[in-house]
């Protein structure tokens, strides 16, 4: 079996991603100090989603992987989201 050529990600890319991630962390700490009410949760989760997107894409190499692996990851997150939403069909309407 032939080994596929690996894409080598440069040190620089990783450093840039890390700096963005740290910046996003400080932003998320910052916005909790502003009175946003019910949007605070949404904001925090949105920033966390952006961060995890970066980790998945660059640190976990999804950007350089074959499409079917990306598809699998997206599928799993979608299933989990659907399960949460359906669970809340109970709690939200109780």
């Amino acid at each position: 079996m032939e080994n596929e050529k690996h894409h080598i990600v440069s040190y620089k890319t990783y450093t840039v991603i890390l700096l963005v991630l740290i910046a996003l962390t400080f932003i998320s700490i910052g916005i909790t100090n502003i009175e946003l009410g019910s949007f605070a949760v949404t904001g925090a989760l949105l920033l966390a989603s952006v961060k995890s997107f970066l980790v998945l894409t660059y640190f976990m190499h999804l950007k350089y992987d074959k499409p079917y692996i990306i598809l699998m990851v997206a599928f799993v997150f979608a299933v989990f989201l659907a399960v949460i939403i359906i669970t809340f069909f109970d709690y939200f309407f109780r």
């Binding site: 359906i86 069909f89 109970d90 939200f92 309407f93």
Partner: peptide, 21 residues
């Protein structure tokens, strides 16, 4: 089959919306 688990709980006191779904 992943999204039908609630039919085991129809008498447990789940919300009506969840029951129909």
């Amino acid at each position: 089959g992943y999204f039908v688990w609630g039919h085991h709980m129809f008498t447990s006191g789940m919300s009506g919306t969840a029951q129909y779904t």
